[in-house]
Amino acid sequence: MTHSPTLTLTVRRPADSIAVLEVAGEIDVDSVPVLRSRALELIRQGSPHIVLDLAPVEFCDSSGLNTMIGILRYAKDRYGSLSLAGAPPHLARLLDITGVGHLIPTHATTAEALRRIGVPDGAPGEKEDL
């Protein structure tokens, strides 16, 4: 588990090349460096397909959206992908209004995102303590 004062990240790996990064708390200018560095580290470690589980997100500002776009670009440069899952209503609206939801695939649940990537039955995988 990776933690900042306003953000907690938990990783699980349902398949070799896929990591689910559960994001809890606030995604803002102070916490995005933690999110960015952890996601890019997972990609460098051999999980180029990242699913951000956003269900526990309480707040997200424009720096969070910009970070998601940066993670997407980094993943695509390494033949990977970024998917968003479980965005709460306030974040889903922000993704829709800004167009980020059209740029990055969004799904109602993590299991749905995993199925779209090709993980059978949206396998949950094991959590990693960081």
Results as ranks from 00 to 15, higher is better:
residue 37 S to W: 04
residue 126 E to P: 00
residue 124 P to K: 08
residue 1 M to I: 11
residue 42 L to M: 13
residue 5 P to Q: 10
residue 72 L to H: 06
residue 91 L to Q: 04
residue 33 P to N: 08
residue 115 R to H: 04
residue 44 R to W: 07
residue 18 I to R: 00
residue 93 R to D: 01
residue 68 M to P: 03
residue 36 R to P: 01
residue 59 F to D: 05
residue 80 G to V: 01
residue 12 R to K: 12
residue 112 E to F: 01
residue 123 A to R: 15
residue 107 H to M: 11
residue 117 I to Q: 11
residue 103 L to I: 15
residue 48 P to Q: 02
residue 115 R to N: 10
residue 126 E to G: 10
residue 101 G to S: 10
residue 52 L to F: 15
residue 61 D to E: 12
residue 97 I to A: 04
residue 106 T to G: 15
residue 46 G to L: 12
residue 70 G to L: 04
residue 121 D to A: 15
residue 43 I to F: 05
residue 78 R to E: 01
residue 58 E to W: 01
residue 48 P to C: 03
residue 110 T to F: 03
residue 118 G to F: 13
residue 102 H to F: 07
residue 130 L to Y: 08
residue 91 L to A: 12
residue 121 D to W: 04
residue 82 L to D: 02
residue 129 D to F: 10
residue 109 T to R: 11
residue 39 A to L: 02
residue 56 P to G: 11
residue 121 D to M: 08
residue 89 P to V: 10
residue 110 T to Q: 05
residue 33 P to C: 07
residue 49 H to S: 07
residue 89 P to K: 12
residue 128 E to M: 12
residue 70 G to D: 05
residue 27 I to C: 04
residue 58 E to H: 03
residue 47 S to W: 00
residue 129 D to T: 13
residue 61 D to F: 11
residue 34 V to A: 15
residue 87 A to S: 14
residue 70 G to C: 02
residue 85 A to H: 09
residue 94 L to S: 03
residue 29 V to L: 14
residue 5 P to Y: 05
residue 114 L to H: 05
residue 83 S to T: 07
residue 129 D to H: 12
residue 87 A to E: 03
residue 72 L to Q: 09
